[in-house]
Design a protein around this nucleic acid. Structure first.
Lengths: 151, 151
DNA sequence: CCGAGATGATAAGTTGACATACTATCTGCC
DNA sequence: GGCAGATAGTATGTCAACTTATCATCTCGG
């Protein structure tokens, strides 16, 4: 035990591994999406996807749905609106709230992108067999759900 | 096929799950580290840890070691230097490079923090059994290594 | 030994994520 | 009916991560 003092290297800690995977995931996403001729980040896509399922959701609702805070969603929404992908209108029933809906263009982009995003998921976890991939997703989902319950 | 079109919800995609875990991980880290009376981010800790193992490493080496790019490490190093945790000196053998070493304070902080960081790892994956935790780490490490090999 | 290309660091710009604080509005309770 | 407290959104500031561009320096081939 003289080498370079290797108490549990950081590279075996969940925290570090997750950070690393996050980084890989983002890179793959941007590459593939750009390759398909679009310019959306993972979070922007998640927002579009959610709005596709829940038209008229307000920003706070969207934030909760994809587990971000309101400030972050405000900024993301700014960009989506600027790109012409979502409409943002003051809610008739609560003037504090902005209801978000996809524009036609937004719906088109979402439809075009869904299969692309679907397809790139396996690249995020390279080197895993199909079975390992399933396991990983199950474990990650379990942890994320537990966190949401506690959170 | 009339509902709200629920093809593979985003919440079962690795990309989204990883983003979520990353977020949880960062939050837990900051909470625990602050609770211990320190103010370091995960990346700052990773940098300290690496410098503890490899004193005199330059910024590019550090960047490679913790899988970040040079620009990011430059900024991180700025903050660590400002906090008095690392020394940054121009390398005598290559005047482009800055050699990084822990200050005494940096070494002390690292020593105090290591057990704290060790202990919080399991909180990052709440709701998993010990066995599932091990599985997760093994799968994540395998994927991360595969990604590193592919470049 | 010298110039071409590689490499270390920094600068500037974009995105995301969060905290905090502030404004506008809504809701519930007295 | 009106005030207290909750909630929606924005503004601001910090930190991280990555891109691209630039500068300084190094190294290697001729």
């Amino acid at each position: 035990m003289k080498t370079t003092a290797t108490k549990a290297p950081i590279s075996r800690m969940p925290g570090h591994l997750i950070r690393r995977l996050h980084q890989i995931s983002t890179k793959v996403f941007l590459q593939r999406v750009r390759g398909a001729g679009f310019d959306l980040t993972p979070v922007q896509f998640a927002a579009l996807d959610t709005l596709g399922r829940h038209p008229g959701l307000d920003q706070a609702g969207l934030a909760q749905n994809i587990a971000k805070d309101r400030a972050t969603i405000g900024a993301v929404t700014d960009r989506l609106e600027q790109k012409g992908l979502v409409h943002r209108v003051v809610s008739p029933r609560d003037r504090r709230a902005r209801e978000l809906t996809l524009s036609d263009e937004g719906a088109r982009v979402l439809a075009a992108l869904r299969p692309v995003v679907m397809a790139l998921q396996s690249e995020i976890l390279p080197g895993l067999t199909a079975e390992e991939y399933r396991q990983f997703v199950a474990l990650a989902a379990k942890a994320a759900e537990a966190a949401a319950r506690e959170g």
